[in-house]
Design a protein around this nucleic acid. Structure first.
Lengths: 169, 169
DNA sequence: ACCTGAACACCGTTCAAGT
DNA sequence: ACCTGAACACCGTTCAAGT
């Protein structure tokens, strides 16, 4: 079921992931899906978390650089699924297993950099929101002519600004 | 038509803004709406821009403080329409008249602060995305117990970090 | 445990026709 | 210019029933 949903996502985007389409792909009646998943929200949540599995966890010594790479990798993965990103943003609350794993990685790296406690929670939240938010914006269908490379540079700048605000000097 | 759509939004949220519901409120057949609007996307775009009319444009001398207040006001307005925000983020490209007006205000204030040209475009984009992104996250239905005041503080911190990165020292 | 058939209460949109 | 009636091609979800 989850596999079928992910295939549909990869092939035809989020709007093609309907209960009925998933059922059809499995050569089964539409309502049969409800034997495996409570409702569409739950299905989508699982699909979302599956995407996060593709984020690379960096292994570099410098914590500032590790954070930079972690957020860049997340940004890149999200850009490959533009239609998912807005839903990501509205659902976010460390739901899935992969989301939680990434949250812990961030926590550890921040601790290495000397940021702990409430400051770490704050830093993590700001970085996550900035990253997902930027991906949502950049991945949207563009009617203006802004090139992807420029958006990428702006993401970089913003990320650096935040990191230099977050990390102790 | 637009008025009916905005009423529905205010009363019952975005999901209640359907072509059929708007038609019903006007005591008219569903397809009659298509005499006044090309499709649902166009309707929603107009509803979105109407919301932006509520943002206060600050008139304080210090450009740093003006930017802070402008973004805070935008954030506050967006938080009053949580279900709209994800769509905002995915549609953003200076579409509506109000969005454009706010963009120009930001441009002017940045110029006062000595930020012009490509740097101004970059700063504007980063600030807008951060603000909308944070509103999208904060406005989402919370299953975790994070209090609104804490999210507000984190928005503030992030905004200050960005501003100190953006503005010349 | 997993599936089907049938139905309910919806969507956005189009087309031809009326005034 | 603005509306209607009727239809098309969809949705998510539920319920009773079958294996």
């Amino acid at each position: 079921v989850l596999a079928a949903a992910n295939e549909l996502l990869a092939e035809k985007g989020l709007s093609a992931v309907t209960m009925r389409a998933v059922a059809q792909r499995l050569a089964v009646a539409p309502n049969a899906i409800y034997s495996h998943v409570a409702n569409k929200t739950e299905l989508v949540d699982e699909v979302l978390d599956a995407v996060l599995a593709k984020v690379d966890v960096p292994r570099v010594a410098d914590p500032a650089e590790a954070l930079y790479e972690l957020m860049s990798s997340t940004h890149a993965v999200l850009l490959r699924h533009p239609d998912l990103v807005p839903i990501f943003l509205s659902r976010q609350g460390s739901r899935g297993a992969n989301a939680q794993r990434l949250g812990e990685v961030m926590h550890d790296v921040l601790a290495e950099a000397g940021v702990t406690g409430a400051a770490a929670v704050e830093a993590r939240r700001v970085l996550i929101i900035f990253t997902i938010g930027f991906a949502a914006f950049s991945g949207a269908p563009r009617d203006d002519g802004v090139p992807a490379a420029e958006l990428q540079r702006h993401f970089d700048s913003g990320l650096r600004w935040l990191l230099s605000g977050i990390l102790p000097k």
